[in-house]
Design a protein around this nucleic acid. Structure first.
Lengths: 338, 338
DNA sequence: CTTGATTCGGATAGCGCTATCCTAGACAAG
DNA sequence: CTTGTCTAGGATAGCGCTATCCGAATCAAG
């Protein structure tokens, strides 16, 4: 039975039900389709809802059904365009499907991620998208115990029951290193910031490739825990040319570093690529405009966001995706800097 | 009376109350302080909550109190570092105060903003942060009728009852133009993309300043509705030097455009600042690393986020902020490109 | 015509909290 | 001692939905 209207101003499902001449629960089912309702009734309820301008209350739905439509998406940073592209793609899939992506920024800090997770999971989210596998044990357990469907982005694993979409960071690092070798470079430096697990995988790809070619020199590896930036890239290049004057290439771990390195080379009068080849990673905006245009690795972040969100949609609707782990292709973009 | 535990696995306020030996409502008040509770009881409830690992259910709170702890923050883009800085500052204020900022991206589209607003307002948010004043009439009414405290960011107005934090876009545009005049430039072009209201205000500042100096030439104004980017800046500079070869300065509306313009000037062999002075806007990352380092206007986006969030905190707690409209200072950052 | 399966609408009972009203006790003023 | 005014706890009643169980109606199979 519809209960007495308490006139809080808000239009409730009871109002719609009364208008359509059905019970509240039938109106609920007609609008959100939990169960089959006769076509004529559906139309009548729909019409009543439109007429009254009914907007369902997400809090009430979450409370009654123990599940909201929110989907936390945890990324390390917004200042790397990489993750902005990822988020845009996620939004384009989830929002039209009726879910609210909630952006959470972890600043590459597992403790901060755990705190965010604790907060977001209290909201009974419908699903969860997180970056990579590097997190606290407590965070891992929070995810597992919550029972919320979760898709891991950027990296892949074969661990059973883990749904992930990413690309091989190691192979991407190796591919660019091989390219530099193929251009005749032998003293290839590697400059990285941030030192998150994905950066370290790329470093490992670089290392193995040079070891195989017999060119590896650990003194050419510059791993710097600071935040990645154009200014840092400039500093790293200056440091490299002053301490290791015989290098003939620098592979920067992210395009902002590489852009800074390129600008520093200009300032120092170092010819690129004649004396030093420069390569970046991620193929960010502006790299094609540099002087000379910057060689880089184009990473499939938009596809990762897209496929990750689609996989999550399947999980949230109770389906089992065809594959648990989706590995996408990166692309070497060779321009004039190498 | 505490009701019978239904063992859904979740630890509820009833469990805490039972553990502490008080009623549910007293536990609620002890934890969230709606009313005064004896110090000893507060401690006992706190302890019980900690022991059981109690996490309040935001959906239930929202339903019962008709107000959640979510605060939608609507920004046009994430690909402009400006808004990322703003969001970081907002987060740093709101999150520790117990509120969840929810990032919404409007893509400079009033219709999209209205849709997001409709969605977010259904969640009974505690407050609202939006960018600028340019929105649909329906969106305006949604905000007004919701009764949710709202602070407007980036621009200011004297309209009564409107709380806003920003800086004078018009004066900022004028200040940089005056700087270029003071350097002896007379054929100063203005190149802008996106053409949102704030861009147009800056254009107006440029226009008025040149008119006052008797140097205004409408053919030097290049307003382009496309999205701002380094590549577009390069194109705009090329277009300017080919169609208006007598220009001696270009004022770009955003630093990404200016960076692109600077790179294009390099490619074309145009000396900066000797033949053409170049200036940007917003002082984004990397501008200080350009060749030559780029003159720009440093905009107080972090302060805007900070003060905007603080103002909202006051409004949400029922206080009236000292001033409805807060105008912050921008800063001319003159480097070698002008 | 019975039986069982299937369909589709409704009544009931909460989800986990807080708003609101109520009451018992303490204490100052009359 | 009465009265009024506080104070700090509790009981009650929902917030607006959906899960769950029920029952009437329909229909194919025996």
């Amino acid at each position: 039975m519809p209960r007495k209207s308490r006139s809080t101003g808000r239009i409730t499902l009871d109002d719609v039900a009364r208008e359509a001449g059905v019970s509240r629960i039938t109106a609920s089912r007609a609008l959100h389709g939990g169960r089959v309702v006769g076509a004529e009734l559906v139309a009548r309820v729909q019409q009543a809802a439109d007429k009254l301008g009914y907007v369902p209350d997400p809090a009430a739905r979450a409370l009654a059904s123990a599940r909201s439509t929110q989907v936390p998406v945890l990324v390390p940073l917004l200042s790397n365009a990489l993750f902005v592209d990822l988020l845009e793609a996620v939004h384009r899939v989830l929002f039209p499907a009726g879910f609210q992506p909630m952006i959470g920024v972890t600043h590459y800090d597992p403790a901060e991620e755990e705190l965010l997770l604790r907060n977001y999971l209290a909201h009974r989210p419908a699903g969860l998208l997180v970056t990579g596998f590097d997190r606290t044990e407590a965070a891992r357990q929070l995810i597992a115990q919550s029972g919320v469907p979760c898709v891991y982005l950027m990296e892949t694993t074969d661990a059973p029951g883990v749904h992930c979409v990413g690309f091989s960071q190691l192979e991407a690092g190796a591919a660019m290193t091989e390219h530099l070798l193929s251009r005749g470079r032998r003293r290839i430096a590697f400059a990285a910031a941030q030192l998150d697990p994905r950066t370290l995988l790329r470093a490992e790809g670089y290392r193995r490739t040079l070891q195989k070619a017999g060119c590896y020199d650990s003194r050419l590896e510059l791993l710097c825990p600071e935040r990645s930036s154009i200014a840092l890239g400039a500093r790293l290049l200056e440091e490299l040319v002053s301490t290791r004057p015989d290098i003939d290439a620098v592979f920067f771990n992210n395009d902002d570093l590489a852009q800074g390195g390129l600008l520093a080379a200009h300032r120092l009068g170092i010819k690129v690529p004649e004396r030093i080849a420069i390569a970046g990673f991620n193929d960010l905006a502006g790299s094609d405009q540099m002087l000379p245009p910057l060689s880089s690795v184009h990473t499939p972040r938009a596809e990762i966001g897209d496929q990750g969100a689609r996989t999550l949609l399947q999980l949230m609707s109770g389906q089992t995706p065809a594959q648990a782990s989706i590995e996408l292709a990166f692309q070497l973009v060779i321009r004039d800097s190498s």
